[in-house]
Nucleic acid binder design. Structure first.
Length: 919
RNA sequence: GCCCGCUUAGCUCAGUGGUAGAGCACGCGCUUCACACGCGCGGGGCCAAUGGUUCGAAUCCAUUAGCGGGCACCA
């Protein structure tokens, strides 16, 4: 068998995925066990316009690990993929293309044609992210792929809308909304962002309004002077004594000449500014509310293009809002009514998409009363902590606080791409909300209906994603019955409100149950300077580049380790896991190059008590690792799983087990002993590949396929009937067998490892040439069992320390003195030996005639003795504290006593060593 | 303004009441027949500061500082 020395990820990433997909391995139908428990995840649908970024890769890795793990555990597992139509983004992208290629606007081609072109665009370019997901190894069920504008999902949207309308949860009416003058649409509060002002914007203007019938003036402070053209009142706090006499009086609005009242309102903070607030009900959310309370008229002075209207006056009409601001300030200055301009930092609301400054406008839109839909989710989180957030802090609280403060959601968007609002108007302007146009006609009794031109917020359809993708509103949909509620939602924290909370609302309302049991919130990946990765900053790391450079599996290990932690991206980490992949490759290479006569699943016959120590040990380590990985994955502690796998594979399996087994595995002579040893390393490797598979699907499959003795019977029982090429992804995930976890074997192996390490350390410190053989090693231990262990492992100890022979006795002293009473071979330990103490009272001596500098050696041992003395002192100080002995748990006291005793023993042994060296 | 999180080895991060950990980086030595993307050995941290609780605190509490988030109709 030809196996390259270096793992080539590209080669392994090429073939397996398409076979898995083709053979239906990703579909829950592969599971033939009718009793199988169910595990399901719906993907947060990426924008159809999007391409893969690190955040996706992180989420997808987490979801894929969970999916593959549960699949291997025999769950009927579904991970459902799909994409989101992403209203504004997609529309803008196609508009841009239209402009560039044909020089036309969407209005030039008309609505119907434009929407047709968006669909065409989607068909042509929309699949990019789904191709990239295949590259990631994402084991999603492509046969169930969904798009938010699919006919069936659109039906769900209409059903949701109509039902809410019928219950009075959705209404149409005027309201204060966020208007983007560039995108020409209303936006919800979650689609806008606050930004701090630049220095040149950070101004607060103090304007004076004269009191009618007197020479008094009232000063108001504003950041937006141009809105004064639409002022219809000035408000003061009812508690503010300074203005008590002014309430009810009339002011003359400068420039405009309108008479406006002074009203009292609790909202006004007497401490801020002048304590008097200009009120512009048509252009400020707070003023709108005040206007409602006091029955003030609304004067719209700014239009949808952020230009001044005719109502702003002839001088201002047509001016941009910032030009108008300048002019207003000039006018006030000319009138002597500009009191001052102060520096003042505040925040400006901008469109989350295009960064244009939002214009608050009063407009007739469709709204959803979220507070009512949110009531049950709020109860669930408060009373039952459902869904369970991971990490719980701070997300559960963030989510709860959000639900507790819900307000109406602006649903309608003045776009062409999206779900058209299912509302029709007759010529008299009556509205008919219906599931279909036919229903609307029937209700209206006429065919002469116009459908509402607006579309719904993209997040409206997203809110239905878990139910709509599984078949709702068909309540007897088998998928809905089987896979709902989903097991976990994996997403980033910035859409907890936009999306997570709303899925819970629709889920409890329409499916009668929470949409998911758990919510796993992934961390954020920053660049190496701690900056958020963004397109505009050009500082993003493209996951596909990382895949190309280091391989998908290595990247996935990094991402899985990141999990819920915010992290600065660092290629070094990926490189080290690339090295790990190569390590796996080469360990397998060794096993395979020595696999003649071997077969996976054999070699561990008979009672474990009769196995060699290192076999009992590796099986124990394997089972512990299986236990750790399983509990870590189930607790979403992926870094713990990765850590356990990395160290099991590299340290336990490669550094020790393979090395300990090497002479048996590579023995010249074929025979049952060699076959068994070869089978054992193969078997451990095969189990390790299964454990690694959820994290590293490609390399594990590539290697697993090459193992002798794997086949259909290796698959988890639930998949044996499936017509698939045997694959590790459908093999059973190793279940920890507690009976095979052998603490004694682990302790004994630790002793062997320590012995080997100490001897190697001595070799290095005394500059013994790597190739040179130590003629003899002496080991003394009072522990009879350990003496057996060392004696039984003599071949391995000598090989791993490059020694020719190892002698074991009850104590080093037994070898000393020339009488040779204690040891069978009758050898003495020469004075020129390096010595060290080991755990549990064991000692080792390494004769190094000619290499020992006695003074140096004495110094080395003296240093060690001093260290032990400090240890002992510390322990004794604590033990002589009666408070400690009295109050600390008995086991802790006991442990400290043990440590003190051991230190004492070591000090004594080191003293004897000094004597043996000769003072 | 309110709320929350973070601060541990040069870097990226684990740990979380009872002798400080990993990977990378670093030093020394190795073409040891799976692997130099490797092997062996090693150096490196008063766990942000101060105070408190405790027999014991990097770990719990409080305050402070720095960094980062979220929420808020203060014009």
């Amino acid at each position: 068998m030809e196996i390259p020395k270096t793992y080539d990820p590209k080669q392994a990433e090429e073939g397996h995925y398409s076979r898995w997909e083709r053979e239906g391995c990703f579909a829950p139908e592969a599971n033939g066990d009718p009793q199988a428990p169910v595990y399901s995840i719906v993907i947060p649908p990426p924008n159809v316009t999007g391409s893969l970024h690190m955040g996706h890769a992180l989420q997808h890795t987490v979801m894929d690990v969970l999916t593959r793990y549960h699949r291997m555990r025999g769950f009927r597992t579904l991970w459902l993929p799909g994409t989101d139509h992403a209203g504004i983004s997609t529309q803008i992208m196609v508009e841009r293309q239209l402009k560039k290629e044909e020089g036309k606007s969407r209005h030039d081609v008309g609505r119907e044609e434009f929407v047709r072109r968006v669909w065409a665009w989607k068909e042509q370019y929309g699949g990019e992210i789904t191709r990239q997901m295949r590259r990631e190894g994402a084991s999603v069920d492509w046969s169930r792929e969904r798009f938010t504008m699919d006919e069936r999902l659109s039906r769900a949207v209409r059903e949701f809308f109509v039902r809410c309308y019928e219950e009075g949860l959705i209404y149409r009416g005027p309201g204060m909304i966020n208007w983007c003058p560039k995108d020409q649409t209303a936006l919800s509060d979650l689609e806008v962002e606050k930004e701090p002002t630049r220095p040149d914007e950070s101004k607060l203007y103090y304007l004076q309004y004269p009191v009618k019938g007197g020479d008094g003036r009232v000063t108001v402070a504003t950041t937006r002077p141009e809105t004064m053209l639409g002022d219809t009142a000035v408000a003061v706090s009812p508690k503010d004594e300074r203005y008590a006499g002014l309430i009810g009086q009339t002011l003359l609005l400068p420039v405009v000449g309108r008479e406006i009242p002074v009203v009292a309102d609790e909202f006004v903070d007497p401490e801020f500014g002048t304590g008097a607030v200009k009120v512009t009900p048509a252009h400020d959310p707070a003023d709108y509310a005040m206007g409602q309370r006091h029955g003030l008229p609304q004067v719209q002075v700014i239009d949808q293009h952020a230009r001044m209207t005719a109502e702003a006056g002839a001088e201002f009409e047509g001016l941009d809002r910032y030009e108008a601001r300048k002019l207003v300030v000039e006018k006030f200055e000319g009138l002597g009514l500009l009191e001052k301009v102060a520096d003042y930092e505040f925040s400006i609301t901008k469109c989350g998409r295009c960064r244009t400054v939002i214009e608050p406008l009063v407009s007739t839109q469709w709204f959803l009363k979220q507070a009512e839909l949110g009531r049950e989710p709020l109860r669930l989180i408060r009373e039952q902590h459902e869904p369970r957030f991971v990490p719980e802090n701070p997300y559960e609280k963030v989510y709860e606080n959000w639900l507790a403060g819900l307000y109406d959601w602006t649903l309608s968007r003045q776009l062409w791409w999206g779900h058209r609002i299912p509302a029709w108007y007759d010529e008299a302007g009556n509205v008919y909300v219906a599931r279909t146009e036919e229903d609307a006609r029937a209700a209206a009794g006429t065919d002469r209906l116009e459908q509402d031109p607006d579309v719904l917020d993209t997040w409206f359809s997203s809110a239905l994603w878990p139910v709509s993708t599984l078949g709702w509103p068909d309540e007897d949909s088998p998928d809905l019955k089987t896979f709902y509620p989903t097991s976990v939602l994996v997403t980033a924290r910035d859409i907890i409100f936009l999306w997570v909370s709303r899925m819970m609302m629709t889920g409890v309302k329409f499916a009668g149950e929470k949409a998911f049991d758990d919510v796993f919130i992934t961390g954020t990946v920053f660049d190496k300077h701690g900056q958020r990765m963004s397109k505009t900053k050009q500082n993003g790391v493209d996951p596909l580049d990382v895949f190309d450079k280091y391989g998908v599996d290595a990247t996935r290990l990094v991402l899985a380790s990141i999990g819920s932690t915010d992290t600065r991206w660092n290629d070094n980490q990926v490189e080290s896991y690339r090295n790990f992949a190569n390590k796996i490759w080469n360990a397998a290479r060794f096993c395979l190059l020595n696999s003649e006569g071997a077969e996976v699943g054999r070699g561990f016959e008979g009672e474990p008590e009769r196995w060699a120590l290192h076999d009992r040990w590796i099986v124990s380590r394997l089972n512990k690792t299986a236990r750790e990985v399983a509990s870590a994955v189930e607790a979403y502690q992926f870094h713990e799983a990765v850590y356990a796998l990395y160290h099991f594979f590299w340290d336990d399996f490669c550094d020790w087990y393979i090395e300990l087994s090497k002479s048996d595995v590579t023995a010249e002579a074929a025979g049952p002993g060699r076959d068994a040893a070869r089978s054992r390393v193969l078997t451990v490797l095969e189990q390790a590949l299964r454990l690694l598979h959820p994290f590293m699907p490609f390399i594990t499959e590539e290697l697993w396929q090459r193992l002798p003795g794997v086949g259909k019977e290796s698959l988890h029982a639930a998949y044996r009937a499936a017509e698939v090429t045997p694959t590790v992804m459908l093999a059973g995930f190793p279940r920890a067998d507690e009976a095979l976890i052998d603490e004694r074997a682990e302790a004994e192996m630790r002793a062997v490892i320590e012995l080997v390490s100490r001897v190697r350390n001595i070799r290095t410190e005394l500059s013994v040439k790597p190739g040179e053989y130590l003629p003899r090693l002496f080991v003394g231990t009072p522990d009879g069992r350990l003496r057996h262990v060392f004696a039984n492992s003599a071949e391995q100890i000598t090989r791993l320390t490059r020694a020719s022979k190892v002698y074991v006795a009850d104590r080093l002293e037994s070898f000393a003195g020339g009488a040779n009473g204690g040891n069978p071979d009758g050898v003495d330990i020469p004075r020129a030996s390096a010595r060290a103490v080991l755990a549990g009272g064991a000692e080792v001596a390494v004769p190094l005639e000619g290499l020992i500098d006695f003074a140096q050696e004495r110094a080395r041992i003296t240093r060690e003795r001093e260290k032990q003395e400090r240890e002992l002192q510390k322990a004794e100080a604590q033990l002589s504290n009666p408070q400690f002995v009295e109050r600390a748990p008995a086991e802790k006291v006991e442990e400290l006593r043990r440590r003190a005793a051991e230190a004492g023993q070591r000090i004594k042994a080191l003293g004897e060593m000094l004597e043996a060296l000769g003072e």
